[in-house]
Amino acid sequence: MTTYFTDQHEWIKVEGGIATVGITAHAAEQLGDVVFVELPAIGKALTKSGEAAVVESVKAASDVYAPVSGEVTEANDTIVGEPAKVNEDPEGAGWFFKLKLTNESELSGLMDKAAYDAFVASGG
């Protein structure tokens, strides 16, 4: 199972045609204490780079984009009730939503861990 990263600071893990998406530890740290999360409805069709979710801290608000196209199969309601989970474990229990991929080839355009770390280090 591979984890991919986007230049908008989302991560995506794919397993059996289902992808789990969240925001990176770096993004969570930059935002500060997360206070609100809005997740897509189950069944919603997302297109690559389209707006998928919203994450807010006290003084910042960001859209979370879909790293790839797909249909939403699950949303992490835990982080809606406890937004602090996004800061505690952004790349684990703080995941946002799951997608059924519609075009697996879109993954090839994303970064791997090493490339993403280099991207962050370069000020991305």
């Binding site: 609100f36 807010e56 801290s57 006290v58 003084k59 910042a60 608000a61």
Partner: peptide, 12 residues
């Protein structure tokens, strides 16, 4: 809930 407001959300 200031993230609704112009000084943070700007055009949104």
């Amino acid at each position: 809930l200031s993230t609704r407001e112009q000084h943070i959300r700007r055009e949104k």
